[in-house]
Amino acid sequence: MNPILRNVLAVVAGWIGGSFVNMGLIQLGHTVLPISGLDPSDMEAYAEMMPSLDAKHFIFPFLAHALGTLVGAAIACVYAANNKMKFAMGIGGLFLLGGIMINYMLPGPTWFAIADIALAYIPMAYIGGKIGEKLATKI
């Protein structure tokens, strides 16, 4: 397969795979730790409730962001034709942009925004890239 096409498909697969993990964990979080009186699809109501939420309500969003990035980076790394770690880090950058946007649209506590931006994206993309490199040698 053409390396450019393979790299593009690796990024798309990483983005889709990581997004599925992200949304799955967000949905699981709403099931495990429901917020009474909140429709999770109503972003305005969600934004209004954010300041009153306990720290436990931020566990699943953090896990979703971190594990979604990790899985997406690993997928991109495994399937990339070359420069595998660069593609893993690119997925981290892509998810970081999404994380900055969601922290802007749904402003939560400052501690969560800092932890989310600093720990859930670039470090997880690096770890996902390392995992992907090991998996790619076995495939």
Results as ranks from 00 to 15, higher is better:
Pro3His: 05
Asn7Gly: 05
Val8Asp: 13
Val11Ile: 14
Val12Ile: 15
Gly18Gln: 06
Gly18Thr: 04
Phe20Arg: 02
Phe20Trp: 14
Val21Ser: 02
Asn22Gln: 02
Met23Cys: 00
Gly24Met: 03
Gly24Ile: 01
Ile26Phe: 02
Leu28Ser: 00
Pro34Asp: 03
Ser36Met: 09
Leu38Cys: 11
Asp39Asn: 15
Asp39Trp: 01
Glu44Lys: 11
Ala45Asn: 14
Ala45Ile: 01
Tyr46Ala: 08
Leu53Tyr: 06
Asp54Asn: 13
Asp54Met: 12
Ala55Pro: 03
His57Val: 02
His57Ser: 12
Ile59Val: 15
Phe60Glu: 08
Ala66Gly: 01
Gly68Pro: 06
Gly68Lys: 00
Gly68Val: 01
Thr69Glu: 11
Val71Tyr: 13
Val71Pro: 03
Gly72Asp: 07
Ala73Met: 07
Ala76Asp: 11
Val78Gly: 03
Val78Cys: 04
Ala80Gln: 12
Ala80Asn: 10
Ala81Asp: 14
Lys84Gly: 01
Gly93Phe: 09
Phe95Ala: 14
Leu96Tyr: 05
Gly98Ser: 14
Gly99Ile: 00
Met101Arg: 07
Leu106Pro: 08
Pro107His: 13
Ile114Phe: 15
Ile114Val: 15
Ala120Glu: 12
Met124Leu: 11
Gly129Phe: 02
Lys130Phe: 00
Lys130Ala: 07
Ile131Glu: 14
Leu135Asp: 06
